[in-house]
Amino acid sequence: MGTATLTPPATAAPPAAGKAGRTGKRPRPARERAFWPFLLPALIAYSALFVLPSLFGFWVSFNKWAGPGSAMTWNGLGNYLELTRSEAFRTAFVNTFVLAFGGGVLVFAFTFLSMMVLRQVKGRAFIRSVIFLPMIISVIAVGVAIGFLLNPDGAVNTVLGWIGIEGRPWLGPDMVFKCIVAGLVWSSTGFYVALMMSAADSIPPYLYEDAKLVGATKWEQFRHITLPLTWDVFAVSAVLWVVNSLKVFEIVIAFTTAGTPASPPIQARTVAVQQYASVAGGGVPELGSGAAMGVVILIVTTVLIVLTRRVTRRERVELS
């Protein structure tokens, strides 16, 4: 590397802070002296306000607690056992899984189909940028706008009425969750298309020309060229989807706020919403139970990440 010859004269200054080191005889380049001063602000903020509070959350989840100023009493696994007995939490838990799996299948089915045609269709750059648009728009705003259309007397039911179909209570307790899944798929697919296409863009075109010569259809080209060569990115995308889908919160609030914000109908709640409702819904807060829900999401996230990685693991396909 030859850094030794490039060391600045200033190395006569006090030796590098910290002891993370090698011999210490060779003068360190300036950026090595800067290691801790540059790193510490972010490291301290992240550790003190993110990592430590997470651990504190674990601790609270084993206690009964109504908040600062009141006594905290040890409850062991009691909070978790109560959750398994709670009808509302069980519904939320099942909903979260339906969202993660059902939504995931839909998102990636649309992503794969889009990848098949987006390589060559006219206006592809434009399509890619417009389907990405929902990612940058507040989900709350989308929920309010779509909610207006799906209202019992709203535009969708009016239009359905014209063609003789009876309107439905789209945002009523029984159907709102399906609308939420659809809304989530609509708003997130563009991101995964962008992610996967950024990998697909670097596949050399001659592979597709060869495939055409042997008579492969567009679907077969996707199946045997595009997908294998973007599989690593798909594996990462799947993990990202898992992480994001398990904390779905805003879109549920947005679709169900016509009434009172803190209490969406049980049928539409995810675990994240159930947790929010349990602390923001008024009354004496039961922080232990809320913290336990947070831990449940963390555990499910971790387990699903491991599973997803295992399912998507396979030998890397590379161009030679």
Binding site: F50, G57, V60, G67, Q275, V279, G290, A291, G294, V295
Partner: peptide, 12 residues
């Protein structure tokens, strides 16, 4: 780490 893990600590 999902934000939900630290929702309760944040309130506290």
């Amino acid at each position: 780490i999902p934000v939900q893990t630290i929702v309760i600590p944040i309130i506290v």
